[in-house]
Design a protein around this nucleic acid. Structure first.
Length: 478
RNA sequence: GGCGCUGUACCCAAGUGGUAAGGGAGAGGUCUGCAAAACCUUUAUUCGGCGGUUCGAAUCCGCCCGGCGCCUCCA
């Protein structure tokens, strides 16, 4: 089977064929850095992380670009209100660039914790003002835009294909529009390419139209095509950005360059919290830094991947607890395999590893069906464990199982760490634990169950799982 | 009002024409002094409801009922 991707542009699953053989250019809308990242960010960037990992696994040379928006988005509607970063800078009494810097760092901290591999290029909007101005200039020259009063607007009426991504028509937009019609615009659906800055606006730049700042959509057009060319393979982002953001990107870029912008559009769905939309106005936003206090980042990652990227994901404590236990189960299997390898021998292979692998890859090929892929991992886990408990697995079987878990669970999904340690890195700690368990062995021999159970409980509290088995005691770091 | 998504067991969640994955929770069992881990067995004759198409539908079509998103910054 070959990779199929659901393309929002055509609304169906299409076979993936890169524009240039063996190479993939992908651009994903990055965060606006005016606050800490939340679980919505996690869903989006974990999903795209797996997409990129999988493309690489398939052998593509992937160039992954993700912007950092450090300017230009306004708090209210399309072309009014305050710059969000400037607003935050006022609240925190910091320079806007400090705000941007602070939350960029915070963003990467969280993503690193989630095991999200860094994009190859993370361009900032403020670092690409010149490129953005160039596009605005070009659009004016070609008659796709008009200048009013130091601001420049895109003229939607000049671009008949406007709406092709989101399936809307300009007429519909007017009919249901809640936007207050800006007196500067010729048409309510027109959008800002460049905005004139008032003197109190801190982030502003010189332009052919006077001092100002870029409109919201232009940075993505400028930075994606600068590094990936036009057209490029994949543009990703959140569903909520499909309209107007991505629609406007298409209009600008295709009008400017006179050729298609993107081949495949991928949109990931949203997070709800206890069944409700998560939003700033609802006050139910869950920051990652808070979530991580309760759940290990890998649990959050696993939880996200247990549902499909195009489905909404409902975040609840109950569901997270279940995910935690599920992931533990997989980790236990891998730990069991790794410790069993030390004492195993034999070269027989009775498990159909290729079958499991094929099923896993088939699931991934089907529009990155990670829940299905994870289910296969559980099936594999059960099979291997069953051999371990009943017949004993051969060394060769354990080696292959270990490699497969690494390849599928670690390399592709990023949910099984390479260094799943069953022992402490510190030798003295290991020796001490062994010593305690040695003493406990004597206590058990004397049938002092209360005391021996206490030792086990206390060690458990310290994060050391002690398991009494038929042929002795075993322990591991949890 | 317009556009779109969605409704699968107690919870989470795959499955889009061939007879219901997986995880959690529950029940029983193996092992065990106990616990844990792991394994085995079990838990939806049924996929919001009602019609229709079909040899056959959770899957396609129609209507109805619920939930959600976008149309305003949001991943």
């Amino acid at each position: 089977m070959s990779l199929k991707i659901y393309n929002t542009l055509t609304r169906k699953k299409e076979e993936f064929k890169p524009i240039q053989e063996g190479r993939v250019g992908i651009y994903v809308c990055g965060p606006t850095v005016y606050g800490h990242s939340h679980i919505g960010h996690a869903k989006s960037y974990v999903s795209f992380d797996v997409i990129v990992r999988y493309l690489r696994y398939l052998g593509y040379k992937v160039l992954y670009v993700q912007n950092i928006t450090d300017v230009g988005h306004l708090t209210d509607d399309a072309d009014q209100g305050e710059d969000k970063i400037q607003k935050q800078s006022r609240i925190e009494k910091l320079h806007p660039m400090e705000i941007a810097q602070k939350f960029t760092q915070s963003y990467f901290e969280d993503m690193d914790a989630l095991g999200v591999q860094r994009p190859n290029i993370c361009p900032t909007a403020t670092g690409h003002i010149i490129e953005q101005i160039e596009i605005v200039k070009g659009l004016l020259e070609k008659g796709y835009a008009y200048e009013v009063n130091g601001s420049v607007y895109f003229d939607v009426s000049k671009f008949p294909e406007y709406g092709k991504l989101s399936g809307r028509s300009v007429e519909e937009l007017i009919a249901g529009s809640r936007i207050e019609i800006s007196p500067e615009k010729k048409h309510p659906a027109d959008f800002a390419l460049w905005k004139k800055a008032e003197p109190n606006h801190i982030m502003q730049w010189d332009s052919p139209w006077g001092k100002g700042f870029p409109g919201w959509h232009i940075e993505c057009s400028a930075m994606s095509t600068k590094y990936l060319g036009q057209p490029f393979d994949i543009h990703g982002g959140g569903l909520e950005n499909q309209f107007p953001h991505h629609e406007c990107e298409i209009a600008q870029s295709e009008a400017f360059a006179g050729k298609p912008f993107v081949k495949y559009w991928i949109h990931n769905n949203m997070v709800t919290v206890n069944g409700q939309k998560m939003g700033k106005s609802l006050g139910n936003v869950i920051n990652l830094k808070d979530a991580f206090k309760k759940y290990h980042p890998l649990v959050v990652r696993f939880f996200i991947l247990q549902s499909h990227y195009r489905s909404t994901l409902d975040f609840s404590d109950e569901a997270l607890e279940a995910a935690k236990k599920g992931l533990e189960k997989l980790h236990n299997t891998v730990k069991n395999i790794r410790s069993a390898m030390r004492g195993a021998s034999g070269e027989n292979v009775r498990i159909d590893f290729d079958g499991f692998k094929k099923k896993f890859l088939d699931a991934m090929d089907d529009d990155f069906n990670t829940p299905q892929a994870i289910a296969i991992l559980f099936d594999l886990s059960k099979e291997v464990n069953s051999f371990l408990t009943e017949n004993g697995a051969t060394l060769e079987e354990l080696k292959i199982a270990n490699k497969l878990f690494d390849e599928l669970g670690n390399q592709i999904l990023g949910i099984i760490p390479e260094n799943l340690e069953t022992q402490s890195k510190s030798n003295i700690e290991n020796e001490l634990i062994n010593l305690i368990l040695d003493l406990r062995k004597e206590i058990r021999a004397r049938k002092l169950w209360e005391l021996s159970d206490k030792i086990r409980d206390e060690l458990n509290k310290l994060g050391i799982a002690v398991e009494d088995k038929k042929d002795g005691v075993s322990w591991r770091i949890k």
